[in-house]
Design a protein around this nucleic acid. Structure first.
Length: 878
DNA sequence: GTGGTCACG
DNA sequence: ACGTACGTGACCACG
């Protein structure tokens, strides 16, 4: 197949489109009809021609000198309407966004550029298509150069096509003779004068017979209509000028090369944005439907034969870098994708001799031998294939999270868009639904595309992501904390925690007995049965039927939240029953029944620890959430008895003592608070003593409680309203506490003020270890939003630094357990607490190790203290 | 799918 | 006059 070049006459097509379409504007009032029409023509041509190269030529100054000569001569130049003029730069922006080559050169017209490039293409053996609204261009037509002239007829675009034959048929002259034709008849649209009194008919006759203007002039006396003969005789200079004007230069020194004109993905994110801005809704849909066809993503080779798969795997194992992706199905590998470059990406589905076990071996070999392995979700991948080392891995999902922790999901196609500028098929594009189907219901082609794109983006986005991390000073955080943590979390998930299912069921049954009793009592007091779990129904019963007063409202009715009810009617028996009912049903549904569903065949619960969820850097736990197992209330706390250490082991529960307040002491450098930590074991009591100016041993329980609340409030980004709610006091009293607190610890106020101010300047806050959180709310014009932003700015560095510290501790604890070949295992992390399952005989050493690594995880102005407890179950160990 | 509620740090 | 404490996840009701 010959390669094909499409060359477009920019101004000419823009002009055609402008006059061919009604006056369109976008929401900003920008005129867009010419651009819109141009794009429609462009897409139509590209669909039909499927060229490899595309260039749009523009005159640098429209209209250009050649036309200017005549314009001055004739004085009839019509100015370009403003509505069209403003669309020229816009058109160029759109083309640039689509990555289309624009050719323009000082001193040359678009015609000359088109002519030069067309002849060059033809000479070099390529097919050429010129698109213009200007018949002047017909002179360039040959058997390989096609000139296409779009016309608008009754709202539809039809295109007239001209090779040599069509020109001959329509004009009875060869393409080069079009120049002679124009020299005689002129062309008003192109500002070519021609000679007076000669129109198309006569000119055609003359040129058809004599071949050229010059030859006709030599045979002047033979020229038939006398009028034409006289005109040619008297105005031959004009004919010569016209010929010069009409001749397109095919040998201009144009700065152009094939590589820059090669057609990539026109459907770039930039193009999408600009189309949206211009309100090209029609084109946007077309954009979407065509996206799959014209992506920058790689061709994924589907390898189903053992031989070719084997060969590809050998090639992969020898590579210096690779992106890999495993598609799982029911705990087994259903397929493996590997990307070594944009040109070398393949997918091997499990089947036949290519067993899941074989794929696992291949994946592990690549993970062992390729120095730089990139992934999208390494923790998940490690459920199926394990690496013998940790160095050299790069997880693009985690990198993307660090660079913007506010997103709810991190997809490979978003990462490709943001960091590669490439639009590649998303899971939705491939499967036609948002949800990823099981590997068994995908076609091999779908699986290959999905896994292949993922592997490719993992490979390709590594450099840009790494650079961005570097720029934002988060490379160390990424390499030394987040990536090693992936391995720690994978170990924890694999370990799981043993649950005594029988006891859990028994616990649930006991709850149900009590729930039935309380439910009956509530119905009796209400005088009817209703759904107590429905806040709506409950609100009606409490506030309308039972006439409770002073209710707070939510968006959709009365608030029945516990704190509201408690304050409202502390003595009403129904309220107490309802609160007990809520507590019981919560325990039953979420914990007793909920956890039961997660006990695996090995008698353990393997929860997921997610590293890319929170805005502050904490990890989260799901399926089930083991970070919110009850502890505050005794009845709920009993659940912890069903979490047991395995045979021969005990749990060691180690938690940091007030880590966030200690971080605050360090970050603020407040001497008083630092000093307080150096001498007192009870920080809330000493705070009360300082704030309320009473001797340490005369602090009342109420004073201590208040001081503790203020300490929490400070960490959350204090507000008098929040504190007053928490303590059920007036806002004024709360404000008074806060003021006294700041008087006692002046550097804390300075620190918080400084942090908020810096956040407003920079747009983000960061932790001791460089973790960033953007705070866009600070720019909001809404007071509430802005206040929220301020509290976030105060809280995030504190919560985030604490999160960083315990992550470091987890990595070190896990590493040391492995290095010392302990049988003890890290099972859970609950923000400031680690739970370890430890053989009885290792307890002393492991306790020592834990304390050492947790305390040593960071060096602050105050000591990090760790409380540890052991027990056969989680209840005992807490 | 969203909002209300409540479990945890 | 406004109307909240910071960070999560699971379950239920309801449209």
């Amino acid at each position: 197949m010959k390669e094909k070049i499409v060359l477009i006459d920019g101004h000419s097509i823009l002009n055609r489109a402008f006059y061919g379409l009604p006056n369109l504007t976008n929401s900003e009032g920008l005129h867009t009809n010419a651009v819109y029409g141009f794009l429609n023509i462009l897409f139509k041509i590209l669909e039909e021609e499927k060229p490899q190269y595309l260039t749009v030529a523009f005159d640098l100054h429209a209209p250009t000198f050649r036309h200017e000569m005549y314009a001055e001569y004739k004085g009839t130049r019509k100015p370009m309407p403003e509505e069209l003029r403003e669309q020229v730069p816009l058109m160029k922006q759109v083309l640039e966004a689509m990555g289309v080559k624009i050719a323009e050169q000082e001193g040359y017209e678009a015609d000359d550029i088109l002519g030069t490039l067309a002849r060059r293409g033809e000479r070099e053996g390529r097919d050429v298509t010129i698109v213009s609204g200007d018949r002047d261009l017909l002179q360039l037509a040959t058997d390989t150069i096609l000139v296409r002239i779009p016309k608008t007829r009754m709202g539809k675009t039809v295109i007239e096509d001209y090779h040599t034959a069509e020109v001959l048929e329509k004009y009875q002259v060869t393409p080069p003779q079009i120049i002679d034709l124009k020299a005689l008849m002129g062309d008003t649209s192109d500002n070519i004068p021609g000679i007076p009194g000669v129109g198309e008919k006569t000119a055609t006759k003359i040129i058809a017979e004599y071949g050229s203007v010059e030859n006709a002039h030599e045979h002047l006396e033979e020229i038939k209509p006398k009028k034409a003969m006289e005109s040619l005789r008297d105005h031959y200079d004009l004919a010569e000028l016209s010929k010069k004007l009409a001749t397109i230069d095919t040998d201009s020194p144009i700065d152009w090369d094939y590589e820059s004109a090669r057609i990539g993905s026109l459907y770039t994110p930039e193009a999408y944005d600009i189309f949206r801005r211009l309100d090209f809704k029609n084109l946007l849909t077309r954009f979407d439907s065509q996206k799959a066809e014209s992506l920058k993503g790689p061709e994924v080779k589907l390898l189903e034969e053992f031989q070719e798969a084997e060969e590809a795997c050998r090639r992969a194992a020898a590579a210096r870098r690779a992106g890999i992706c495993i598609l799982p199905e029911q705990g087994q590998i259903a397929g493996l994708a590997v990307s070594l470059s944009a040109e070398d990406t393949f997918y091997i589905p499990a089947g036949g001799f290519l067993t899941p076990d074989y794929l696992k071996t291949v994946a592990e070999r690549i993970m062992a031998e390729v120095p730089e392995v990139s992934t999208f979700g390494l923790k998940g991948l490690m459920k199926y294939a394990r690496a013998p080392r940790q160095e050299g891995f790069f997880d693009i999902q985690i990198a993307a999270y660090l660079l913007n922790p506010l997103k709810s999901v991190y997809t490979y196609d978003d990462i490709a868009k943001e960091y590669l500028g490439a639009v590649i098929p998303s899971a939705e594009d491939i499967f036609g639904s948002v949800k990823l189907p099981g590997a068994s219901v995908m076609t091999p082609e779908q699986a290959a595309c999905y896994a292949g794109q993922t592997a490719f983006v993992s490979l390709a986005a590594r450099e840009p992501l790494s650079g961005a991390l570097e720029e934002q000073h988060m490379k160390q955080l990424f390499l030394e904390i987040e990536m090693p943590l992936v391995f720690t979390l994978a170990d924890m998930e694999e370990a799981g925690i043993e649950v005594h299912a029988e006891e859990l069921q028994e616990y649930g049954r006991n709850l149900q007995v009590r729930i039935d009793e309380v439910e009956k009592k509530i119905y009796e007091q209400a005088g009817e049965t209703f759904n107590i779990n429905s806040p709506k129904q409950l609100g009606v019963i409490l506030f309308e039927k039972l006439k409770l007063t002073g209710g707070k409202k939510t968006k959709s009715g009365y608030s029945t939240a516990a704190d509201v009810l408690e304050r409202l009617a502390p003595d009403a028996p129904v309220v107490a029953d309802i609160l007990e009912y809520r507590q019981l049903t919560k325990l039953k549904s979420t914990y007793a029944d909920g956890l039961m569903n997660y006990v695996a065949a090995d008698g353990r619960i393997h929860s997921s620890f997610n590293q890319t969820i929170t805005a502050t850097g904490r990890i989260s736990s799901t399926d089930p959430n083991l970070q919110n197992i009850p502890v505050r209330m005794e009845l709920g706390r009993q659940i912890r008895k069903v979490f047991v250490a395995k045979e021969g082991c005990v749990f060691i529960d180690a938690d940091y003592s007030q880590i966030e307040l200690r971080v605050l002491a360090h970050l603020s450098g407040d001497e008083k608070l630092i000093q307080a930590y150096r001498e007192a074991s009870d920080i809330h009591r000493i705070t009360a003593s300082e704030v309320f100016h009473v001797p340490f041993d005369q602090v009342t329980p109420l004073q201590r409680r208040n001081a503790k609340a203020v300490n929490f409030g400070i960490v959350y980004g204090i507000s008098s309203f929040g504190l007053s709610q928490d303590l059920s006091i007036s806002r004024k009293e709360a404000a008074d506490y806060i003021e006294k607190y700041f008087q006692t610890y002046p550097k804390i106020k300075e620190f918080l003020d400084r942090t908020v101010k810096e956040a407003k300047d920079k747009g983000y806050v960061d932790t001791m270890f460089g973790r960033r959180r953007p705070v866009p709310e600070l720019k909001s014009s809404n007071y509430m939003q802005r206040s929220f932003g301020e509290r976030v700015a105060m809280n995030s560095p504190i919560q985030g630094t604490a999160a960083d510290i315990i992550k470091i501790a987890m990595i070190r604890v896990n590493e040391r357990l492995k290095r010392e070949q302990r049988k003890a295992r890290l099972l859970l992390q609950v923000h400031d607490e680690l739970l370890i399952e430890c053989p009885m005989e290792e307890v002393d050493q492991v306790c020592a190790l834990l304390e050492e690594e947790m305390r040593g995880a960071a060096s602050l102005a105050v000591e990090l203290e760790v409380d540890m407890h052991t027990g056969k179950n989680w209840y005992e160990a807490k």
